[in-house]
Amino acid sequence: MAIDITTYDPKNLHLPEFDILHSGHLACPGCGAALGMRLALKALGPKTMVVIPACCWAVINGPYPYEALGVPVLQVAFETAAISASGIRAALDAQGKEGITVLAWAGDGGTFDIGFQSLSGAAERNDDIIYVCYDNEAYMNTGIQRSSATPYGAWTTTTPVESPKPEPKKNMVEIMAEHRVPYTATASLAFPEDFVRKLQKAQSIRGAKFIHLWSSCPPGHKSEERYSIRIARLAVETGVFPLYEVDYGTKYTINHEPAFTDINEYLKLQGRFRHLKPYHVENMRRNIEWEWKRLRAKVEMGEKLPLPPAPVHAPVDEGEHTPPAK
């Protein structure tokens, strides 16, 4: 039965109605990563196989012998999300099975840090997988340690308030885009239609696709559970987390022009930023400005550049392939 979504205001959501994710999973109340998976399965449908490395989601999916995903899931070692997904794709290809989406679903630690080399390899080989990093900006499952995705100034157990993280967040989307994979994008829980569209676009493309999903985490961000979506929205509206996508590392498209709301609105809802001094906030502001200048410049550059040239294949009538001379 179709849900009667009454569409008065243009902002009402239009999303697939079915759900594959089951209730009873073990995510904390208000977990953004749980909502992210729910939306991902809505977008990709039942013919999806999922790889989950060590991270919160390995726990969320339920203790043995339970599982919440409702599609085949392989739980693998921390650093192997991408390579395991590549392996599943190779196995499916070997069996001649088509029409199956392989999704690697990993945390920021498992993506930005320990899983990075395997992800870079899969991207370089352009293996046909969708890799989603749900980014809660720290190693949450093991008790909130900093990762290279942790933002400047944030508190974690390894960056205490006396010396909060001095380095800015690593820009993973640009790094992945520079692999020249066909599709890279950022996404937010507060913009579910945009996230679903991006997943479906990724699903329609052959090759390696990377989506960076900013994810609320009430215990890790020291925020109120009910504000999980509000904070995700503010991450976008303050300019902290731009919503954009990149085709073939070349064509940058901004998907939502932020209101550039005062960043304090975003910071004040999260205890992990409570210790910040005005100069920290000023540094954040300047960084946002700089990042946006870079991003807009990339958009401009992309407008002038063509997409990669179509490949030329060996002529069919040239007979046997001649091996190169010894």
């Binding site: 849900i3 979504i5 009454t6 009402n12 999303l15 995510a27 208000g30 749980a34 909502l35 999980s228």
Partner: peptide, 27 residues
């Protein structure tokens, strides 16, 4: 009527249902 924001009155917009991380709301 479509401009009305239907304040304080459920109009089945489904936001509650779509944003629940626990799939605990059903139409």
């Amino acid at each position: 009527a479509r401009r009305c924001m239907v304040c304080g009155t459920c109009n089945e917009c489904c936001n509650c249902l779509f944003f629940c991380p626990d799939v605990a709301i059903h139409k």
